[in-house]
């Protein structure tokens, strides 16, 4: 009886264990199957690089959305990478232990805050702020803009980059720092020449992970970025990133022919791009580990 249970348990667990991999495959093919309808009519390249988005006329050019995604992500990275890395260095190399123990949970907390809440904050604080500062640069902006999206997104990816970077730094042996310090190097010199250099692969991985997180982030960006289907010309213009496109059109999705197919293609593209970056980041991390030995 006991052995029977053991066997049954084992079988059930085995079947369940295959599921995650299966889910991944299913996800890919599910989205692919749906997007075939539109790919049968138009070329993949044509869809990616044409900029007309008129669902009712059957035009589904994804180009403005790709550009929108790039803009917002780029702005987010420009803001988030230096700030996150500086904070990570501060926590790992400078901060007293008490402060480190205090700050780490706060970072976890930040990463646990739901996307919509960032969106609310963005709408209430960042959007008016951007609207206010745009005239200083000689431009008008409603505030709902690439810059607002980028700022909100930057705050959302702080925890990702900081977390990975901290792990990378803590893997660097302490005596290595001592070696540099004992030559009379200052802490910053030690950090720059030893810690950052030794951790370079890991730092790249941290940034790439932040990037892929930013690429897929939906709700917060959707709420502040303005959603105009044209490629933005400056950071004060509205943009329309890919995830926002998918999320924003759930209503009409079944009423317009090919619409669902086009959106699923967008989801598929997002899936592939994000995964490419994730795998790239993993590759860098593995290299970083090998280097540490």
């Amino acid at each position: 009886m006991r052995l029977l249970k053991e066997k049954a348990g084992r079988t059930v667990m085995f079947i369940l264990t295959v599921l995650p991999t299966l889910l991944l495959v299913l996800m890919f093919f599910g989205l692919f199957r749906k997007s075939r309808a539109i790919l049968a009519l138009k070329s993949f390249g044509g869809l990616l690089f044409s900029s007309g988005w008129h669902p009712l006329r059957g035009e589904f050019g994804l180009f403005p959305f790709l550009i929108g995604t790039l803009w917002v992500t780029a702005v987010a990275l420009v803001i988030a990478v230096p700030i996150s890395l500086l904070m990570a260095v501060y926590l790992s190399e400078y901060a007293p232990r008490g402060f480190r123990d205090f700050a780490k949970p706060l970072i976890d907390l930040l990463s646990g805050i739901p996307s919509v809440i960032f969106g609310v904050w963005g709408v209430l604080v960042i959007v008016p702020l951007v609207g206010r500062i745009a005239p200083l640069f000689g431009r008008y902006s409603s505030g709902y803009s690439v810059l607002a999206g980028g700022i909100v997104l930057a705050v959302m990816i702080f925890p990702t980059i900081i977390h990975v970077a901290l792990e990378v730094f803590s893997a660097i042996p302490f005596p290595l720092r001592e070696a540099s310090l004992s030559l009379g190097a200052t802490r910053w010199e030690t950090t720059r020449h030893v810690v950052l250099r030794k951790g370079s692969q890991g730092i790249i991985a941290a940034c790439v992970l932040g990037l892929s997180r930013a690429l897929g982030e939906t709700m917060a960006v959707l709420m502040v970025v303005g959603n105009v289907p044209a490629a933005p010309k400056s950071v004060f213009d509205a943009g329309y990133p890919l995830p926002a496109l998918i999320a924003n059109n759930y209503g009409e999705i079944l009423s317009v022919p090919l619409y669902d197919s086009a959106l699923m293609l967008a989801a598929l593209v997002l899936f592939i791009v994000v995964q490419t970056f994730n795998i790239l980041a993993r590759w860098f991390l593995v290299r970083a580990e090998r280097r540490a030995e």
């Binding site: 005596p175 030559l183 009379g184 030893v194 250099r197 030794k198």
Partner: peptide, 17 residues
Amino acid sequence: IRKKMGLLSQKPQVLPM
């Protein structure tokens, strides 16, 4: 102060360069 003293640690710590 540190410049006046060279340190050899237990395991050699070569810098990543």
